[in-house]
Design a protein around this nucleic acid. Structure first.
Length: 408
DNA sequence: TCTGGGGTCCTAGGACCC
DNA sequence: TCTGGGGTCCTAGGACCC
């Protein structure tokens, strides 16, 4: 008896931020829309409608560049905090379809339909592939009907091929790459389309004359290793459609949740100034505000950080990060003290500053709270007020000043 | 009018310990 | 007077993703 064919599905919302903005303002439908920042502001495109993509606008490019290509488009600021609820609604629908799923980002998730063929079998289906394909189509239809958001999906035997397929299916498409057809599907595509190959790896491959994924599949392994190092082998196997778990970047997909192995990740906030600054009080106020923000998030998650990192970007874009590890904390005053020390010690140039950031890492779950062993009465009161009246209800006095530097 | 903000993962060198 | 490795932690930086 043949082994069951794995059926991984990558579900991806089409032009997600633009689609949500259109949901809230239907007059945007059919219009060229760029989400990112207003023209004249510092920012990059975070979502571009198909109308502006036709003009060459791509997510990631500066809004200034986008404006040159599409001056008549509607420009909207990215409203972080608005999109999460829509993402969660989509997730809940999708999770009703398979027992095993994994969230990859705010607009992308993976579903494992392996072994679900019989669950969804319909009389008209011609084989298990047709059953799964029809089911995924039903899922994207349901998302559109109930949430109002268009999506696309790719189905394949491996995670990375499913991901590439979902991109090829857009917009509003479902594309299945059948077992054994992975290589013929990937072969003609440019190398950059494969997940994990970014601008740097692309440049190296092109310099070797490797332009398509077929070139990568058939290149001698030693050649690939010469430019990509240890990653070459797993990449080549993944390009051949072999295995879904070998890529280092891909955490073992669809594993059981393991609380022991679960990493607590990092918490960071950073901010680009509207204009580069030198004024010490503005710098201080911004750092104060960033420390407040990350510590508030840490306390909400019930974690303390052992490592604090300061990020500093000068006007000419030179960027450095300096960190220090010490006893765990989630107190903004302690974090601020460290951050100011790092700044004093490592800020060598008098060049104006473009961006400041604060990151908490090496996170630890807090010990069991007792009456006298939490973050202290001040934090309890502050966090309580914020819970009721919103984050901006209270700030350290110094942080106030920096609010004048933030975008409206 | 160049270049956001939130992440993950990997590498590499040095310190330190056994 | 010379000379190990292995393991772990810390720091800095870079590639990549959405």
């Amino acid at each position: 008896m043949a082994l069951p064919v794995p059926r991984l599905c990558c579900l991806d919302l089409d032009t997600f931020f633009v689609s949500v903005e259109r949901l809230l303002d239907p007059s945007l439908k059919g219009k060229p829309v760029v989400v990112g920042a207003l023209p004249g502001q510092r920012g990059v495109v975070t979502s571009a409608s198909y109308e502006v993509r036709a003009l060459g606008v791509r997510s990631g490019m500066s809004v200034a560049d986008a404006y040159r290509l599409a001056p008549r488009a509607v420009y909207l600021p990215t409203r972080h905090g608005l999109y999460g609820d829509y993402s969660a609604r989509v997730r809940r629908i999708a999770e009703g379809y398979t027992p095993v799923s994994q969230v990859a980002s705010i607009d992308e998730m993976f579903l494992d339909f392996s072994g679900c063929e019989r669950l969804y079998l319909a009389p008209e289906d011609e084989g298990p592939d047709a059953t799964i394909e029809r089911t995924v189509r039903r899922l994207t239809d349901e998302i559109e009907a109930r949430v109002g958001l268009p999506s696309s999906a790719g189905i394949a035997t491996s995670r990375s091929v499913a991901k590439v397929a979902s991109g090829a299916a857009k917009p509003r498409g479902v594309l299945m790459v059948r077992a054994g057809e992975e290589q013929s599907f990937l072969a003609p595509l440019p190398v950059r389309r494969f997940p994990g190959i970014g601008p740097v790896a692309e440049g190296k491959l092109l310099a070797l004359g490797l332009n398509t994924l077929e070139d990568v599949m058939s290149a001698p392994l030693a050649t690939l290793q010469g430019v990509l190092g240890a990653w070459a082998g797993p990449l080549q196997r993944a390009c051949r459609g072999q295995g879904g778990h070998e890529l280092g970047r891909e955490r073992p997909a669809f594993q059981e949740f393991d609380p022991q192995g679960e990493t607590l990740g990092t918490i960071s906030n950073e901010r680009t100034f509207r204009e580069d600054i030198l004024d010490p009080s503005s710098i201080h106020a911004m750092l104060c505000s960033l420390c407040e923000r990350v510590c508030y998030r840490a306390r909400k998650r019930g974690v303390k950080a052992r490592t604090v990192t300061l990020k500093l970007r000068y006007a000419d874009f030179q960027t450095l990060e300096r960190s220090r590890t010490f006893t765990p904390t989630a107190s903004e005053l302690e974090v601020l003290r460290v951050v100011l020390e790092l700044l004093r010690k490592h800020r060598q140039r008098r060049t104006a500053i473009r961006l400041l950031g604060v990151r908490l890492s090496n996170l630890e779950v807090q010990r069991q709270l007792t009456l006298f062993d939490d973050h202290g009465p001040v934090h309890r009161v502050v966090d309580g007020v914020r819970q009721r009246f919103g984050y901006d209800a209270l700030h350290l006095a110094l942080a106030q000043r920096d609010r004048e530097h933030e975008e409206p």
